[in-house]
Nucleic acid binder design. Structure first.
Length: 259
DNA sequence: GGCCAGGAGGCCT
DNA sequence: AGGCCTCATGGC
């Protein structure tokens, strides 16, 4: 166990409830056990911006996106948008995690028409079925080859339903998700949407949470409510570029938590 | 407490 | 515009 200091814009609970990650589990005291790719971390707040961590290295520094200045991004919010200002204030501490693109893609294909607990359950079953065992009860997120080795029946046993054929097709395809890093936003969205089971929503989430494309603005039922209620003329995307995705996270969190 | 029905953080045809 | 797999949720 060691201790790290993360003294601004870092709220574990808000990140956990922001809908971007599905392998975070509370361990009490405001702490979480976090699994990502083939890594696992237990992190617990001890006050004054200090956190007790089970391990700490460049992987986690990068994962938590600690180098991005969210206060500066919030400072760009227009004074004549009180709703977004309130949302950003409520959401202070949310960061857009730098998750693995492959893991993010598969997770959000699974997410369609599922509740958060159901998504978490499916992902965990999938890791158990195909992921490398890290320690007793803990499994890495399966690689593309590991997923491809599963039959469609194995996938269905993870509770994937009609999504099983999407996962099987993506895992069995020649597409290398990591190689898409070099594409610009427009090209990347187009390429992702060519994959089976990937529409604009899943592609947008994969880009924002897996490729760290901070301008993507995934529109789900919660965001659609916000748009209907507060932006009758549409969201001002030009004004908030290239950080529309950060604004989306604040709006999502605020609408879901407080209304 | 258990059972059932409508809906869920979409995509495809 | 409908169907799709499954599951958590809420009403009875």
């Amino acid at each position: 166990m060691s201790s790290v200091k993360i003294d601004n814009d870092f709220d574990l609970r808000k990140i956990a409830e922001s809908g971007q990650c599905f392998r975070w589990n509370p361990v009490g005291g405001g702490g979480y056990r976090i699994q990502a790719k083939d890594r696992m971390l237990t992190i617990c707040p001890t006050g004054q911006g200090l956190y007790e961590v089970s391990e700490w290295d460049a992987f986690w520094e990068n994962y938590f996106d600690l180098s991005t200045g969210y206060a500066e991004i919030r400072a760009g919010i227009s004074e004549d948008d009180p709703y977004l200002r309130a949302a950003a204030q409520a959401g202070e501490g949310i960061r857009i995690l730098r998750q693995d693109p492959w893991e993010t893609l598969i997770t959000f294909i699974i997410s369609q028409r599922k509740s958060i607990p159901a998504i978490k359950g499916c992902v965990e079953k999938l890791c158990r079925a195909a992921g490398r065992k890290l320690s007793e009860g803990y499994y890495a997120f399966p690689t593309k080859d590991e997923l491809a080795a599963l039959s469609t029946e194995d996938l269905r046993a993870c509770g994937l339903g009609y999504r099983a054929k999407y996962i099987a097709a993506v895992a069995g395809s020649s597409t290398d998700v990591d190689e898409m890093r070099t594409l610009d936003d427009e090209q990347l969205l187009k390429e992702l949407m060519l994959l089976p089971g990937v529409g604009v929503k899943v592609a947008s989430c994969t880009m924002l949470f897996g490729f760290h494309r901070l301008n993507l603005f995934p529109e789900d039922v919660w965001i659609n409510r916000v748009l209907e209620e507060h932006y009758p003329d549409g969201f001002p995307f030009e004004r908030y570029a290239p950080y529309c995705g950060v604004m989306q996270q604040y709006l999502f969190y605020y609408r879901r938590m407080y209304h």
